[in-house]
């Protein structure tokens, strides 16, 4: 059966707010809205513990909590099935595209973060432990 992972659907963390300062693995500081796919890839390359995995959106269903959705991902080369329940405004970073959420209007309204619509087939940036390989 699929396993649940964070994030919790209770509230969205503060770092998605437009203007939040994000530190890359090499120490460079960027605003959350300026992050590019390469920033995640290069940061993971430097990391000894974490590696980037591609997580493809396979299904998006209504969640149990209000304003929540359950997203089923196919993760990594193993295509492991992982489900997460998140708020509809939770942004994921799509390779080559940038921030995307199930309800981009709400993400923009709450966090001023421009988002695309997250769709089945989108390939999101995710992390796994290197030792899990």
């Amino acid at each position: 059966p699929p396993v649940s992972s964070p994030p919790s659907p209770v509230a969205l963390p503060p770092f998605f707010m437009r203007g939040s300062i994000i530190q890359l693995a090499d120490g460079e500081l960027k605003r959350v809205e300026d992050l590019k796919t390469e920033d995640f890839i290069q940061s993971a390359e430097i990391s000894n513990e974490l590696k980037i995995d591609s997580s493809t959106v396979e299904r998006i269903d209504t969640g149990q909590s209000p304003n929540a959705v359950v997203i089923q991902f196919s993760v990594g080369e193993l295509k492991a099935q992982v489900c997460v329940e998140v708020l509809v405004e939770y942004p994921f970073f799509v390779f080559g595209q940038g921030w995307s959420s199930c309800c981009p209007d709400r993400t923009t309204q709450l966090f001023e973060l421009s988002c695309a619509k997250l769709c089945v087939g989108d390939v999101c940036v995710s992390l796994t432990l290197r030792s899990l390989k």
Binding site: P14, F16, I21, I22, Q23, S43, G76
Partner: peptide, 25 residues
């Protein structure tokens, strides 16, 4: 003198979901 207000800095990996796949065989 006014101390500059410290701005929170978040590590890059906070923004990425940690999806640990189950070992499938």
């Amino acid at each position: 003198n006014v101390e500059p207000r410290s701005v929170p800095v978040f590590p890059w990996h906070s923004l990425v979901p940690f999806l640990a796949p189950t070992q499938s065989d």
